[in-house]
Design a protein around this nucleic acid. Structure first.
Length: 260
DNA sequence: ATGTCCGTACATTACGGA
């Protein structure tokens, strides 16, 4: 079983890159974030031609998540259980969860937390609290699961290049990192770090300031594995070369292989 | 020191978000 997570920064702008990547890699599942379109605008037909079914949770302009699958998949949730919708509004399109091959896959796009002032940051922390509670519930029910996506968290100082972030950035503040560690203390395994314990393993390079040619990256896209899934972990690596393509996303796919 | 890209709308440029 092989799956990948990829923040594509507009699926319509990146359709050719995604279908090309699928044809070269043929994962069982591809978890997409920041599709930046409404569900009805998602190019499901193009992915169907490539052999993939789509489960889409979209919204206008921002956010949006989808799971492409070439194996049978069952929808479980269209938003993060236990999370309140914003005051007087709809849920942001930031979470979709399916079951495939005996494993639950939660695909998440965590709030960045740098916009909207203190309220925006608190919303990020509440989102993380709900994610921790959901992971705890799934562990309590003995469910095998993966929680993967754009966490907008650089868990340690090894996870960003010097000068790439300020110390008070929402991606690295102590309260952010404390919550990421809480997922680990529950017993979840950070797949990329389990395979590559030390040093830079970036998944994102900003479009600005020549971050890619200077390798000023961040490691913010993660796949967290429940214990029995972690025992099957064979590899977990970002596909760096995807950042070098014309008009790329600022994130690259992170590819995880599990023993069957 | 600075360097970008996406989608939207009171649209042909400005803006928020990342």
């Amino acid at each position: 079983m092989r799956f990948a997570t990829w923040n594509v920064n507009s699926v319509r702008q990146r359709l050719g890159l995604v279908t090309d990547w699928l044809s070269r890699n043929s994962p069982d599942l591809l978890l997409l974030q920041e599709i930046k379109c409404e569900t009805a605008q998602f190019p499901a037909g193009a992915f169907q031609e490539a052999g993939y079914d789509s489960v889409v949770v979209g919204q206008k302009s921002y956010n949006g998540v989808a799971i492409l699958s070439r194996v049978p998949a069952t929808l479980r949730h269209r938003h993060l259980p236990g999370l309140e919708a914003p005051e007087g509004g709809e849920h942001h399109a930031r979470y979709v969860e399916i079951e495939a091959g005996g494993i639950v896959f939660g695909n998440l796009y965590l709030p960045n937390g740098n916009s909207g002032g203190a309220d925006g940051y608190q919303a990020k922390l509440r989102w993380m609290d709900a994610l921790i509670a959901h992971a705890r519930d799934m562990l309590a029910s003995d469910t095998d699961f993966v929680l993967a996506g754009d966490y907008n968290v650089a868990p340690t100082d090894e996870d960003f290049a010097t000068g790439a972030l300020s110390a008070d950035d929402a991606l690295v503040r102590p309260e952010t990192r404390e919550r990421f560690r809480a997922l680990q203390w529950l017993g979840l395994t950070d797949a990329v770090r389990a395979v590559t314990p030390r040093g830079p393993v970036y998944t994102f390079w900003d479009y600005q300031a020549g971050c890619w040619p200077r390798d000023r990256g961040l490691r913010i896209d993660h796949a967290m594995l429940s214990p029995r899934v972690a025992e099957r972990l064979l590899s977990a690596v970002p596909d760096r070369m995807e950042r070098d393509k014309p008009q790329p996303s600022d994130h690259v796919p992170v590819v995880v292989t599990l023993a069957d």
